[in-house]
Amino acid sequence: MAQDDKALIARLQQHGVEFVLIGGVCGVMHGAGLVTYDLDVCCRLGSVNLRRLEAALKDLNPWHRLTPNKLPFALTDELCSCLKNLYLQTDLGKLDCLGDVKGVGDYDAVLKRSVEFEMSFGRIRMLDLDTLIAAKEAVGREKDKYAVRLLRVLAEKRRGSN
């Protein structure tokens, strides 16, 4: 199944979804030479932003990828009030939307520790490098430790060039 992270990011940006890139793709954009199979974002999981997300993904056949019966992604007022995370499969690939990031905090905390980048389709935000390292250390899986080794090199070089 296709995974087109740039197209997914562009969709979110163009529909005004409040999100911050986290996880593997964030690491890639900072310069870590890793391969990651899904797109992780932290986003505000309130009703307004969820409706924007729903609109962004509407024609991509989104469904909850961790449900055994592939439940379609369809918001109700009740669901908006109790969602903590969203793990979606779409025609453009996997999109995981987390309401908070371990080691960092909720969306507002994540937003404070994010940096803005200009992409060809607009400005997007992603976790700053030091916070990404802290987040990966907080999760602590073997693959995160592997990534942290690379990310620490990038942080060290950045400090050196500053």
């Binding site: 087109d4 992270d5 740039k6 793709v25 890639v28 954009m29 900072h30 310069g31 391969v35 990651t36 980048f117 992409m119 060809s120 992603m126």
Partner: peptide
């Protein structure tokens, strides 16, 4: 650039 890295990753 970050976008070039993303394109290469893709």
């Amino acid at each position: 650039t970050p976008e070039q890295r993303l394109d290469e990753h893709q």
